[in-house]
Design a protein around this nucleic acid. Structure first.
Length: 467
RNA sequence: GGCCAGGUGGCAGAGUGGUCAUGCAGCGGCCUGCAAAGCCGUCUACGCCGGUUCGAUCCCGACCCUGGCCUCCA
């Protein structure tokens, strides 16, 4: 039985979707004003894992993840670049899709854009207006009246008085309450704008997710997710708007992933300590990145450092080394795999405990290595089982030999093969000093030589990512 | 200042009221022409102070420290 830590209750709860054959999951995607960085990658990988696991566990899943393609930062960026907003966003969405693919993220079932749901947002705001929870500020903006929603603050565990006590919210003359938030922004000159009952303008940030999630999923939505930084105010406001407008519960399980940190700090655009996904992919293969991100529990912080990425790579190599030589053919023998399958499921059912599930994979590796000399068939079956279990994480999808040899980087394969032949000849002639010299020569070039049983010798690249 | 999360061995990172996490690194052994890989064994832990308990890293309380949110943010 899957247990999920629900942010709203801050407790573990058994996952009981409204309809197991149609689990709705909505995740707040990215705002396309620049290339995505590793913080976004974590959100993508974590929810990719969640969706894969739900599906593997037998649920039918409808995965919706939005794109925010209109907001202040986008407009600012467009002005900076002297590029029309729609061209900028289209370009960045394309790049985002490239990143997604490069990371091996399965695309969501629906990927709604804010600008294609303006009508739904306006209708939602109208309902709020009719219920007296929306009002017009003097400047043409429309606000949500926070004190008309009694349970405001429940999701993030805050109370209005506490929030008001904080002095960081600027006083805005046009708002009835400093905590009221924008539903509709009046257009300024030269900004993208849509007609509405309150004049030309554009939606506030929070309303778009309410409108898009309700358009594509039934209420209450089973799972709504996003980064921890969206907990407040974004998700809090989504709840307020949605429930005030519909009178129904909005979301049953809230899931928030932790941050990517650099040293002690959160990786963030504004901090300037970020690395884009595409830059990371020039330095690390995608499975290493995924391993790194999934080696910590999704709610814990994960630190970006060359050491941690190197560890991820080495750990992954151990998995691939076990798979090497087992071949691709054959399917897993369910009976043989059962003990590990079972432990794996227990770990994943415990709020997607990926580190614990990974430990099961490594225990399985030990078993494969133990039996492979005596019972190759069993090793094959277990190897196939290892691949199947790892599918939830999106790794072990490469050919082991190809993964271990690595791509490019340093010396060319032809040169290596030539050295290997020379060394082989030396070995066969009993010239071990020469063979060792060549081995060292290769090692200096970052190539590790491994003599197998008989004459077979193999090589692989030691990743230089420690440096 | 308010609210939330967390402090585990050399590093990363799970977990549990009283035998093992797991990976990398280290050490010993087996294997190997030598290595590598692998297998077997093994060392380094649970921020601090009290309390509950036969027994606490795990429960309770205080304290110290770190991070996050409270403004755009995955």
């Amino acid at each position: 039985m899957l247990q999920i830590f629900n942010t709203r209750t801050r407790r573990m709860e058994p996952f009981e979707p409204t309809d197991p054959k149609a689990v709705g999951i909505y995740v707040c995607g990215v705002t396309v004003y620049d290339d995505c960085h590793l913080g976004h990658a974590r959100m993508l990988v974590v929810f990719d894992m969640v969706v894969r696991y739900l599906r593997q566990a037998g649920y039918g899943v409808r995965y919706v993840r939005n794109l925010t393609d209109i907001d202040d930062k986008i407009i600012r960026r467009a002005i900076e670049l002297g590029e029309p907003v729609d061209r900028l966003t289209r370009r960045l969405i394309d790049r985002f899709h490239e990143d997604q693919k490069a990371l091996g993220i399965a695309p969501p079932d629906v990927e709604p854009c804010a600008t294609e749901h303006i009508e739904a947002m306006i209708r939602l705001i109208e309902r709020l207006w009719d219920r007296g929870v929306a009002y017009s500020g003097g400047n043409g903006d429309v606000y949500f009246r926070v004190d008309r929603f009694p349970t405001y603050g429940t999701l993030s565990g805050r109370r209005l008085e506490e929030l008001r006590a904080g002095s960081r919210i600027g006083i805005d003359e046009t708002k009835a309450d400093p905590l009221d938030f924008v539903l509709w922004k009046a257009a300024k000159p030269n900004e993208p704008a849509w007609p509405s009952p309150w004049g030309k303008g554009r939606p506030g940030w929070h309303i778009e997710c309410s409108a898009m999630s309700m358009t594509h999923l039934d209420l209450p939505i089973d799972i709504h997710g996003g980064g921890q930084d969206l907990e407040f105010p974004h998700h809090e406001n989504e709840v307020a708007q949605s429930e005030a407008a519909t009178g129904q519960p909005f979301v049953r399980y809230w899931i928030h992933n932790g941050f990517v940190q650099v040293g002690q700090d959160k990786m963030a655009k504004s901090q300037g300590n970020f690395m884009t996904i595409r830059e990371a992919l020039t330095r690390y293969d995608r499975e290493t990145l995924r391993f790194w991100l999934l080696a910590s529990h999704y709610r814990s912080p994960v630190t970006f450092s060359t050491e941690n990425l190197a560890q991820a790579r080495f750990s992954l190599e151990r998995l691939y080394l076990a798979l090497r030589g087992l071949g691709e053919s054959g399917s897993a023998d369910p009976a043989a795999l059962a003990p590990w399958q079972s432990r794996f499921a227990i770990a994943m059912d415990d709020d997607f405990n990926t580190p614990d599930a990974l430990a099961v994979l490594f225990d399985l590796v030990r078993e494969i290595n133990r039996v492979r000399t005596g019972d190759l068939e069993r090793a094959r079956h277990l190897g196939q089982g290892l691949r199947e279990l790892a599918r939830v994480f999106g790794f072990l999808e490469s050919d082991p030999e190809a993964f271990l040899k690595g791509v490019g980087g340093g010396v060319a394969d032809d040169w290596i093969e030539e050295r290997m032949r020379e060394r082989q000849q030396a070995r066969e002639a009993g010239q071990y000093a020469e063979a060792d010299r060549i081995r060292q020569q290769l090692l200096d070039a970052g190539i590790l030589v491994e003599d197998g049983p008989g004459k077979q010798a193999r090589w692989r690249r030691r990743p230089s990512i420690l440096s």
